[in-house]
């Protein structure tokens, strides 16, 4: 059975008293033990907090389970546009923690955590590809799922489901002019 992640959050708050972590559940639940806890970290402090979370034996989040991005454009009461969600997992202790980092237009950028968890390599490239968020310090930040010449970021909320880039909208180039 998984243990509570609360002690690790307390350690984190004690270590960085100047950061407003705003710890809380992703979603309130009736049973407290079902809640998935989440902390917020500003992008400029992200690397040191993440390094602490991985290396401190009281936290020991050895694995970056997932890295995703959510575009909160049009989301009710949202104040920031992009939320990058790091799902951390402690394999030795069996608990999880979600870390959120909010960035905004123009030029959204966060530091890359590939130096802490190698497993962040492709997920960061995917977020770059799909949302256009640059990861500073990533060794090989290229598009991963779409092709190299592709210009848009399809998972942004202002990218339509239909129409853009579809076959009938392609420019047909005659063979001689190609």
């Amino acid at each position: 059975m998984s243990t509570s992640v609360q002690p690790a959050i307390d350690v984190l708050i004690a270590r960085f008293p100047d950061i407003e972590f705003a710890p809380g559940p992703l979603m309130p639940r009736d049973k407290k033990e079902d809640e998935q806890l989440c902390v917020r970290v500003p992008p400029d402090r992200l690397l040191e907090v993440m390094r602490f979370l991985r290396e401190d034996p009281r936290c020991s989040f050895e694995q970056l389970c997932d890295l995703a991005c959510v575009d909160y454009l049009n989301f009710p009461n949202a104040r920031n546009r992009f939320g990058i969600v790091y799902a951390l997992l402690s394999v030795s202790r069996g608990y999880r923690l979600w870390v959120k980092c909010f960035v905004n237009d123009p030029d959204p950028e966060v530091p890359s955590v590939t130096s802490i968890w190698w497993g962040a390599d492709w997920p960061e490239r995917e977020v770059y590809d799909m949302f256009g968020i640059r990861f500073e310090g990533h060794p090989d930040l290229r598009r991963i799922l779409t092709w190299e010449g592709f210009e848009a970021h399809p998972l942004r909320k202002d990218y339509p489901l239909h129409g853009r880039g579809e076959r009938e909208n392609f420019v047909v180039v005659p063979r001689e002019g190609a």
Partner: peptide, 10 residues
Amino acid sequence: RDDAVNWGLT
């Protein structure tokens, strides 16, 4: 083992 954890293998 440590590399597997660090690469996110499951």
